[in-house]
Write a protein that binds this DNA or RNA. Sequence first.
DNA 1: ACACGTTTAATACAATTGTTTGAAATGAAT
DNA 2: ATTCATTTCAAACAATTGTATTAAACGTGT
Lengths: 222, 222
Amino acid sequence: MNVLKAYITPPESAEDTRQRLLEAAGEVFAEKGFRSATVREICSRAGANVAAVNYHFGDKDRLYAAVLKYAHRRALEKFPPSLGLPESASAEDRLKVFIRSFLYRILDEGRPSWHGKLMTRELADPTAALDSLVEESIRPTYETLTGIIGEMLGKAASSDLRYFANSIVGQCVFYCHAAPVLERLAPGKFKSSEIERLAEHISQFSLCALRQPRKTGGRRNK
Amino acid sequence: MNVLKAYITPPESAEDTRQRLLEAAGEVFAEKGFRSATVREICSRAGANVAAVNYHFGDKDRLYAAVLKYAHRRALEKFPPSLGLPESASAEDRLKVFIRSFLYRILDEGRPSWHGKLMTRELADPTAALDSLVEESIRPTYETLTGIIGEMLGKAASSDLRYFANSIVGQCVFYCHAAPVLERLAPGKFKSSEIERLAEHISQFSLCALRQPRKTGGRRNK
DNA sequence: ACACGTTTAATACAATTGTTTGAAATGAAT
DNA sequence: ATTCATTTCAAACAATTGTATTAAACGTGT
């Protein structure tokens, strides 16, 4: 019976509280930010003792780093950057899918819903974890985007690539970053259908600009 | 001599330390955010005693509220929304000026350079001060923008006005909000000339989308 | 010179923070 | 049943926080 039980639930409750800590920490960090979040609240919400964080992760910083990694992995596997779109698809279609997937990743309310808030918080108020987050998570996504844009603009305008990428990403993250203000400017919650509408708008808005013919060298006619 | 001295520096050092506190608090709040900023550092940077904040402002919260008001007033008088542009100017020109002025207000490095950071911090991590900040500062600016856009789109598309406004504001605040990431993605500081270039790009990018003919009712042809 | 209201200063206080400690509990292997 | 490593727990630690208190310093009008 010992053997059987051990086989059915191998890591037993050890790995279990670790997991609960990860989930609870995600919530709290997203709500309060790294500095204002307290390990006491995290542990309490995870139904664990105050010392659990230090036992399982060493300290608050390493717990936070683990949460960031975990959040990004979960979000990516739930909404892969190219949602089943074949590589042969046109650049315009890949851009549309990129925008849609990106929006879902940062705005989705399903589990874990806190991924977007967590990321925007880290953008605005960086901790020591930002460096590796940029290199491992953000830069690859960013380069996917500049790749698509470069294909649409042609090689000549490469110096402007970043501006266009920033314009697109900026439109997206705004809804996550400025959510408290948007809520006050025009009360009413975001539903999932709203995300579809949003993706449609941002795609159209951006495609207009990207389709615009322009001179080589990157500078548009004034 | 008493009379003379009192006349030359009327509020003497009382109003003076109040002012120094305001400036120092602006710096520290912008750097650390409201919750992580300590009144001890603020007072130290202002060359004042720890108790100075409570004496002059009551408590940390009311100091913060005062700083927000002060920052917005200073930024608005330095970069008025319509930089001397006549009201008769075309909607396109007024949009360009709006974008340029908005960017300068949030990205300018002159004094007080912390206005932009302060605002984006309050967006992302609201305090009790956000409500009045939205009503007194943000909403008027936002309505100026939707007014311009509405003129360009025609009345029919009014339900989409907010989307277009968000797209424009989103592009702008991104450079302030995601500054730490942008710095890591492509090192190199922002110079003032960069702001001009940025304004040019965002204007062109957005005008393309706004000029695009669309059906009445707000939804564009898919 | 004196008195008085305003401002500054040093210090203390209670609350909260992340982290540590050492004992109790747990569960599998002998 | 005993041993042992792993995990949980309550309690305590030192550091930092915003704020309150109390006395000193200052400038001003008499």
